[in-house]
C-alpha cells in the first residue's frame, strides 16, 4: 500500500526518530512539497550540488543554472533532506514537466533507514540544450510500507557543499578532450609563427 503522505510525513526529526519502527512511522522531510491533499508523491527540487561524471567531482550549481547539452547526463543532489523510517521503502520517478522537454530521471530506490539528500541521475535525451536551475522540481518519490524493519539505519548524511568549487571543468575538460588535435595544430602553427618572427629579426 502506498503511504499517505498527508498523514505520514513530518518536519520534526525527533518525531521521525521516535517512531521509525512504528506501523505509523513518519517520513522526515525538511521541506514538504506535497501538491494536494491525499497526494501520494513527494516532489524534490534541484539543490546546491551536481556531480561531474567525467572527473568524479562534485560542484556547486551556479545561480543561473547548469546547462546540459543534448545527450548529456549529470547527477544532481536534491534541495530537500529526507529521512526514511526503518519499515518504509521509497521509489524515485520522473515528473510530468520533463515529459515534453526530454528530461529523463534515472529510476532509483530509497532504502529503509536512508537519511540525507537524494542524488538524482538526469539525462537530456532531447536534441536541444537544457538549463537546470536550483529550486526547480527534478523528481518525485512515492513510498511503500515494508513487511520487515531493518535493524540499523544507514550512515548519516554529511554535507560537503561548503568546500566545493562553483565551476568544475565540465566544459573545459570536455572541450580539450574533444578538440585536442585542433588545439595541437594551432599550438604548433603559433610556435612556428613565433620562430619565424624571431628569424626575421
Amino acid at each position: 500500500m502506498i503511504i499517505d503522505l498527508k498523514q505520514r510525513t513530518t518536519t520534526d526529526w525527533s518525531k521521525f526518530d521516535s517512531y521509525k519502527k512504528s506501523m505509523e512511522s513518519l517520513i522526515f522531510v525538511d521541506k514538504k512539497n506535497i501538491k494536494d491533499d491525499g497526494a501520494c508523491c513527494l516532489d524534490f527540487t534541484i539543490g546546491e550540488r551536481w556531480f561531474n561524471q567525467s572527473n568524479s567531482q562534485w560542484y556547486i550549481i551556479p545561480d543561473d543554472g547548469i546547462i546540459l547539452k543534448s545527450t548529456e547526463a549529470i547527477t544532481i543532489e536534491t534541495n530537500e533532506k529526507l529521512g526514511v523510517p526503518l519499515n518504509v521503502f521509497g521509489v524515485v520517478t520522473g515528473v510530468g514537466r520533463n515529459i515534453y522537454s526530454g528530461g529523463m530521471v534515472s529510476s532509483g530506490k530509497i532504502d529503509p533507514g536512508f537519511n540525507g539528500k537524494l542524488r538524482i541521475g538526469f539525462f537530456n535525451s532531447s536534441r536541444k540544450k537544457m538549463t537546470l536551475k536550483k529550486g526547480e522540481t527534478i523528481c518525485a518519490c512515492y513510498f511503500i510500507q515494508s513487511e520487515t524493519s531493518i535493524v540499523a539505519p544507514l550512515p548519516a548524511y554529511i554535507d560537503e557543499s561548503q568546500s566545493l568549487p562553483t565551476k568544475g571543468g565540465f566544459k573545459v575538460k570536455k572541450f580539450l578532450l574533444a578538440n585536442w588535435d585542433k588545439i595541437l595544430t594551432i599550438a604548433i602553427a603559433g610556435f612556428a609563427l613565433y620562430v619565424s618572427i624571431l628569424a626575421l629579426k
Binding site: 517512531y19 521509525k20 506501523m23
Partner: peptide
C-alpha cells in the same frame, strides 16, 4: 495484524 516493533512503537506513538 500489527505485531512486534510495529505494535510497540504504535502504542507509544498514539498512546
Amino acid at each position: 495484524l500489527i505485531v512486534g516493533d510495529n505494535l510497540k512503537y504504535l502504542i507509544k506513538q498514539y498512546d
